[in-house]
Nucleic acid binder design. Sequence first.
DNA 1: TCTCAAGCGAGAGCACTGCTCTCGAAAACG
DNA 2: CGTTTTCGAGAGCAGTGCTCTCGCTTGAGA
Lengths: 236, 236
Amino acid sequence: MSTTRGARARAREEVTAAIKDEARRQLAAEGAAKLSLRAVARELGMVSSALYRYFPSRDDLLTALIIDAYDSIGEAAERADAALLKKGDGVAPVRRWVAVGEAVRAWALAHPHEYALIYGSPVPGYTAPMTTVPAASRVGLLFIGIVRDAHQGRGVAEPPLSVELRPEAERLAAELAPDLPPAVVAALVAAWAQLFGLIGFELFGQFNRVVEDRAAFFSHAATQLAHGVGLVLPRA
Amino acid sequence: MSTTRGARARAREEVTAAIKDEARRQLAAEGAAKLSLRAVARELGMVSSALYRYFPSRDDLLTALIIDAYDSIGEAAERADAALLKKGDGVAPVRRWVAVGEAVRAWALAHPHEYALIYGSPVPGYTAPMTTVPAASRVGLLFIGIVRDAHQGRGVAEPPLSVELRPEAERLAAELAPDLPPAVVAALVAAWAQLFGLIGFELFGQFNRVVEDRAAFFSHAATQLAHGVGLVLPRA
DNA sequence: TCTCAAGCGAGAGCACTGCTCTCGAAAACG
DNA sequence: CGTTTTCGAGAGCAGTGCTCTCGCTTGAGA
């Protein structure tokens, strides 16, 4: 199939991958603002105009990197959860929640510029195209899955829900997890955003000269967030 | 004083202010990435090199805008709190907390690019200079003040605190608010970061196709955050 | 009051960017 | 085999941040 489809197509994929790799290298080294198409081309031994055969613009290259980053952080999160599940079958959902949060944080610390690309401020004029949606959803879906498992195991205490938010909570639940109580889904979405708020503040320097033991701080806060969603502690 | 110090110095301040104003206009219109020194100079009817008499580099202009933005959002938050306090003297701290949160969110929605500048990903080679610290602290200090007032009024229920976080919590309390219990201070710092996480997710598009009634969602989440810090509901 | 250094704007110029267009070679297809 | 598509190279355009030099203006000290 894809091998018979010609050396042409295969070469194209290879060059495309090489461009992305080099771009990712520059991204990690200097940040998105200093990512230069010409520098990428130069490093690859080709001329800048040749690069436009593969990516119609700098923003399209960025978009490709964004999707890859979403997939990378999503996979890191999923692996952390899977590794925990493999250890034993009685894993408390709280532990899974915190482990996934810590995995996300670890990925962010290891790839700060890529994290900034996807969870920081959107770059130029640029609105993320629909193609990024599936990759971007992976971490969120993982959290939903954990809460769902907890709910099926009767491990969820329903969080409070104000009357003002009830309609929105029901809409959220219908769209994201119809099998979960609206109050849980609303709390889940909020906790999801808040978790990334903690990571963003740490990564973007807001915790400088404030929080010192950031790992402990994050784990504690993530645990509290899990409680807020209704995930209860394992019976000690 | 400053008037006798010469028309020279006054002209300098005026030009500096004009540059910042025009830069802020471009920032609001197109974002930090498209802020161009040359375009600012062009709009002001001067040549680009003249601008370097006032700001030694583009990054220095950005830094000035960052400080102004921090001051602006801090002032917006403080005004919201003051306005609430003026209405009556028995204002529940929870209400103040939520009002300040909503003011911060409103400012962010009104100045998305400036918000991205200060709470989004740091721009080029970054490392915010020390000079930004006081302005950057205003919102945080305001939250601390609210919790402190609540504590003096016996309106704080101490949040849970894991043994792992106790040392860090005590350090935080000693540094930020020695008169408050470490558990409260730790929860406060976490809630502070989480609140901006909610705003960032809304502003940077993470809530697109997810949360619809964002105002209600934010108010609810902010209220929950206040409870997490220990601010209790007013006795109904 | 006069003088001279400091402050300032204009202009040219450097190295760099994203992007477009054209041209010739090479590969793929009929 | 010929034709069409694909690709890289090169030149070029408009724009960027930033530096340097050159004169004009202005304000402060002798």
